[in-house]
């Protein structure tokens, strides 16, 4: 019969329409503004209206979510900050749109370059959030942020981030990406252990050398 297909289609639409109310009943009116219900509503078990009441509700970003890089510094016990970045330039070399500018610093006495950036710029207008800088950083120093609400009034003055704006403590990174942070910490610990072992071996060699020269 002509029109039966349309009626069937209407049936599906009505089912979708009623689905929201069924889901509402299931949550006893706590379908909205409730993290538990929200998690279900955005999962493969979702039923009924799917939309998110942004900005009152926000999607929970997964750990890997990446948006604009930042630089990590460690907070030492005496309260000073230590940059992890050594200004090796790998991030600037791998950056596809070439939006990273790094100024290396020189030792004021000897004039030789030291492993610390004097300045670090990222033009976030150009940054494409690909995450390659963080992926290939050998010092766990540049990492992707997850704050996507970064609109400003003036792109000319506000959108070239300098080092002061990019610097964030390691604890911040731990708070946004606990799993990746743990991986990084393990890598750093491993490097330090290697370095310590090397140092010990060197000292031992030195000692042996001294002994032989003494003897």
């Amino acid at each position: 019969m002509y029109g039966i297909g349309m009626v069937r289609g209407m049936g599906v639409t009505i089912k979708h329409f009623i689905g929201t109310y069924v889901d509402d009943l299931r949550w006893f009116g706590r379908r909205y503004y409730n993290p538990e219900a929200f998690a279900v509503r955005q999962s493969p078990k979702a039923q009924g209206v799917f939309t998110v009441q942004y900005p009152e509700e926000k999607l929970v970003t997964p750990e890997e979510f990446r948006y604009i890089p930042f630089l990590i510094y460690d907070e030492l016990e005496d309260g000073t900050r230590q940059d992890r970045c050594t200004s090796c330039g790998i991030c600037a070399k791998v950056c596809p749109p070439q939006c990273i500018w790094i100024v290396r610093s020189d030792d004021p006495e000897t004039g030789r370059p030291i492993p610390e950036p004097a300045e670090f710029f990222i033009d976030v207008d150009i940054c494409m959030n690909c995450g390659l800088c963080s992926e290939f950083c050998p010092f766990e120093a540049i990492r992707m942020d997850n704050d996507y609400e970064i609109s400003t009034y003036d792109r000319l003055s506000d959108n070239i981030y300098n080092k002061a704006k990019l610097d964030k403590p390691a604890s911040y990174y731990a708070s946004i990406r606990p799993r990746n942070y743990a991986v990084d910490e393990a890598a750093i610990a491993e490097k330090q252990a290697k370095k310590a072992a090397k140092e010990a071996a060197r000292k031992q060699r030195q000692q042996e050398k001294n002994q032989t020269s003494d003897g």
Binding site: K93, V103, P113, D123
Partner: peptide
């Protein structure tokens, strides 16, 4: 046009940022 191929030399270590 800046250079024939990336990475561009002026990004590091000079880092004179410009648009």
């Amino acid at each position: 046009y800046e250079e024939d191929s990336k990475p561009f030399a002026n990004r590091w270590p000079e880092g004179g940022v410009y648009r």
